[in-house]
Design a protein around this nucleic acid. Structure first.
Lengths: 341, 341
DNA sequence: CCATTAAGGTTTAGCGCTATACTTCGGATG
DNA sequence: CATCCGAAGTATAGCGCTAAACCTTAATGG
């Protein structure tokens, strides 16, 4: 059936442990000739170590869980922005010799099960709400190292990297202000006093303060971050806010929906109204006009997440505070100087 | 540390095997009261079975690998169309009590390693080229059940579901022909006598035959399926094919790129030229004009793939021929009757 | 010349689980 | 009354691997 250490050992006329040492590069205890012979025979026989046996014996699985929210019986809820992340995370883990278990999580209980069952060395939470991250306790995670991406939860167990939402929004809004816009609509989902959207709102507000402009609460539009809801908003935007000349949306798909709504109601982008998004999806290049947006360095975020996690696993280096990934503004065609009223 | 069967057994005053039987629902051999007691204590102690120990002992891991091509040191190559698939596959597997190991594959050798290392029960190949699928032999896959999605490889080891590319292309082309178009450009990557693109080309050709129209080899445009290449093509399209009134592109991003190129060179879509894509990404709804395209039922494809694989694992039901997933044409705004010349 | 050390191994004891065979005991059967 | 049987367990033997302790042999040093 399966080629085991024993098979290789017998064929090579040495003990199982010697083979194990060779396979694991524990060369100090084996002579060069033996190493060579064992390696040759292992290759000949097509020996592949059994990961389950290894993790059982060594109580380290080199397995990392990528936990993603999923309503029961429902598909994974990976936002377009997070999709690119899972590929990057897998690559980074593979580079470091770890494997990725992708797992949808329907409820708190499943977290424990997911973490313990495969004796994961670590896990990354992607796309969970801050409240859900808050809910994790030492008991639920056990000895597994856990880290949440893009979370503003203060749970010390889950500290991970997040994008600099505040600066991103500040940059975007400042860009609009610099172009002469003074009535800028903030479009995003409902938010509380903490979290991604709150940060972006604070950035929006700070940008106004930076240039001594006033901002008006009436320009805050609460809307789901979908294309359809964006279009809806765009359609009636100038009816509700006749003086508005720009929109900062907290997500690209939302921004693109808004652009469509505006276009359909005869408003030209960027001539009449400028629009800025957030995320820098591929989509932005495809949109007409191409969308100005805030770019997050996904590769850096993924790499940082993985490195923080592995560092914590291998060196016990538990991070004490979140790492902020810098963002940048990508100027494209959806923004232009404010029209003269 | 970890709560094991032994812990539960000791606390319940029974043998390890009895607990094991209870946990695995092997109730025939245990009295109702014992079942109740063991279950209560297991819950109290927060017992979670060790998957590695299980798979080592039972030589069945309930682990399925999702193998995706990835250049060495490079991120996973998941096409936008396949992205949705991984979520669906994970859901389906989770429903059936399996777990998903996501793994990038840089070369043939890694396939064996990926399959054997975790003693996978099965694996799904997503996005591999037909040649790569052809290359898998009984030796490389061992006793692991393998299945390739969207492959036209004739390798009997990997038979899986694929979309009905032929019919999709035929539908799309027929739609254009029915609108009166007679000079329809076929835009897609280079292809040989077998594979996805070839099937779509055959569908394109068949549609012409269906209505007694002739098709012309000069209308075949070989182009990478990227937005940028599409735009390039769109820019010069009417220079190269002044009589063309429609384009069938083998992918949505390509189609959307073409639409942009056409728009930039002053050609109106759909008034002057109609465009049809393939895949039905979310993107199509966002494009301006919204893209008419061929829709693949991703949920069905994922569910079919998982069911075929699990069926093969649990009942040894090796499929003898590929399953074809039906496709449909989604008419949106990028197609219109052919203009009068 | 004996103790020490280093190199190059081997042996032992599990990791947590499951499959299989075995035990025990209170009835039902011939 | 001896036998058989089913219900409800238990004991044993691994799955493939690793950590840690143990063993040889030959060279070194005081």
């Amino acid at each position: 059936m399966r080629v085991t250490l024993r098979d290789v050992a017998e064929r090579a006329g040495v003990s199982i442990m010697t083979v194990s040492n060779v396979i694991n590069g524990n060369r100090a205890r084996v002579s060069p000739e033996t190493i060579e012979r064992v390696q040759r025979i292992a290759a000949e026989l097509g020996y592949v170590p059994s990961a389950s046996a290894r993790s059982l014996s060594a109580r380290s699985s080199r397995l990392i869980g990528l936990l993603v929210p999923a309503a029961d019986e429902d598909s994974l809820m990976i936002s377009p922005h997070n999709v690119a992340m899972v590929g990057q995370i897998e690559r980074e883990l593979r580079r470091l010799g770890y494997h990725l278990l992708l797992r949808g999580i329907a409820n708190q209980r499943e977290v424990t099960e997911a973490l313990q069952s495969w004796s994961l060395d670590g896990a990354i939470l992607l796309g969970f709400l801050d409240e859900q991250v808050d809910g994790l306790t030492a008991k639920t995670v056990g000895s597994v190292h856990v880290l949440a991406i893009d979370s503003y939860s203060t749970n010390p167990l889950t500290i991970g990297p997040r994008s600099d939402d505040f600066t991103g929004a500040r940059l975007a809004t400042r860009h609009l202000l610099d172009l002469g816009h003074r009535r800028i609509v903030f479009a995003g989902p409902a938010f509380t006093g903490v979290g991604v959207v709150h940060e972006r709102f604070e950035g929006y507000r700070q940008a106004h303060a930076d240039v001594g402009a006033t901002w008006d609460g009436q320009f805050i539009e609460t809307v789901n971050t979908t294309h359809a809801d964006g279009r809806e908003l765009g359609l009636g935007l100038l009816d509700r806010h006749p003086e508005a000349t720009a929109v900062f949306a907290t997500a690209d798909v939302l921004a693109i929906g808004i652009m469509r709504g505006l276009a359909e109601s005869g408003v030209r982008v960027p001539d009449d109204v400028s629009v800025v998004g957030f995320d820098d999806l591929d989509l932005c290049e495809y949109a007409v006009p191409r969308l100005t947006t805030v770019s997050q360095d996904i590769t850096a975020k993924a790499a940082t997440a993985v490195r923080m996690l592995i560092d914590s696993i291998e060196n016990g280096a538990r991070p004490s505070e979140p790492v902020t990934i810098t963002v940048s503004l990508v100027k494209r065609e959806s923004t232009a100087p404010a029209p003269h009223q």
